[in-house]
Design a protein around this nucleic acid. Sequence first.
DNA 1: GGAATAGTGTCTGTGAGACACTATGAG
DNA 2: CTCATAGTGTCTCACAGACACTATTCC
Lengths: 251, 251
Amino acid sequence: MPYDPSAFPPFAVTVDLVVLTVRSHALCALIVRRGEPPHQGRWALPGGFVLPGEDLAAAAARELDEETGLRAYGTEGSATEAHLEQLATYGDPQRDPRMRVVSVAHLVLAPDLPTPRPGGDAYGVRWASVDSMISSPGGGVRDAERFGPLAFDHDRILRDGVERARSKIEYSSLATAFCPPEFTVGELRRVYEAVWGVSLDPRNFHRKVTGTPGFLVATGGSTTRQGGRPAQLFHAGGATLLNPPMLRPES
Amino acid sequence: MPYDPSAFPPFAVTVDLVVLTVRSHALCALIVRRGEPPHQGRWALPGGFVLPGEDLAAAAARELDEETGLRAYGTEGSATEAHLEQLATYGDPQRDPRMRVVSVAHLVLAPDLPTPRPGGDAYGVRWASVDSMISSPGGGVRDAERFGPLAFDHDRILRDGVERARSKIEYSSLATAFCPPEFTVGELRRVYEAVWGVSLDPRNFHRKVTGTPGFLVATGGSTTRQGGRPAQLFHAGGATLLNPPMLRPES
DNA sequence: GGAATAGTGTCTGTGAGACACTATGAG
DNA sequence: CTCATAGTGTCTCACAGACACTATTCC
């Protein structure tokens, strides 16, 4: 371990963000259009340099706030705030043509938000469905506009983030991070359906999700915003690990 | 995303290794004694600088080879080689008192090995049981020698690596990475017992593990090295994801 | 009334865990 | 023989998935 404080290979360290939400039955990610080379005009994940003296998670939260105005909490944010966790680190020597950049990607799960206000030097920022950027297995390209391939290795980072979200909602209560503070069982089910890209039986889903201890807590209120019979409102319970877990069909 | 190739905050990037194996019914990790300040004389995880032009995984594999002579393969190594995967990245500004160091930790799972040959500038390298370094829940300190707390934030990194290994052997075939190329069901069971710190029913374990498709392939041979009735020898099958998964008791 | 969503009851198959029992070696 | 480990059979309980049925709103 030849630490030498004065002679070390110089690196730039950045954070990149995979910000996911569910909009109109589709899993969507936040992307920005690059205003300068390389990859000028291409879409990319939001991100930026880690500042001296700034922790990695703090840098990710700051970039998130700058791009979307969202506040993030790493572990147990109150229900209106987004979930943030570290995803993985990407350090291929060739991933940025200008210099050696190591990027610590973070995953953010947020409830549906208005189209974000542009900020920083990216001259476009928007939501795009994950399917319009990465080809999903069996699904593939839709008729709609396409935004891929993303700049740098961001396709890969996005895929890894989506796969992490898909597997984490199986055994944790993270799916509630996609929901507003109060939500119905049907809304939670539509989150699972959008993230996994499947259809779930509403009756079995209801029985299962209300039977898992600590997952959901009834607020007493009810809503009819989905049409039909009024549904109970819930907020996320204290449990973070689900037992038994939700199982993805035909896994 | 204000990329400016010439003016960026300077960082040092290192890799740290959580190398795990199972020795005499205990989960053990590789540690080195630090030969220089800070934390001189304390035990630490092996690791070192990422070289210019070197990928992160390549740096981890190089450090592993330098410390132990082990070859690592990230995805599908042949059975004698170790499994290597990225764990997480640690970038607290205060984690190294000398400079800003971001460390990309990697997890290595290896079969039992002879005590490694010392190499590099660490003047001691050895296996130590995980319990002798981090207090396990309910278990705690044993009568034996203790090696913690480790230098820097390595206690935290070690805990994260152990937790990753404990959860990954549930739903993947990674437990075979702790075994020699050919192994018996009983040896595989002792891996699970050591990593999880539990006792498993040998009969149910046998039925379950041989019934999971793609997990184990019989070689035709048998051995009596554990005493008792000769046991069939197996090697790892092609499956990487177990379906159904192995379940940790009282989770 | 019909359409839509919420929520309950019930059956069936699968698999986990408990544990009796048999098999085959070493000493 | 005894002891140790390997391996099989069988029972029970829990839960996932299929699906009939009822409940409550809006039109």
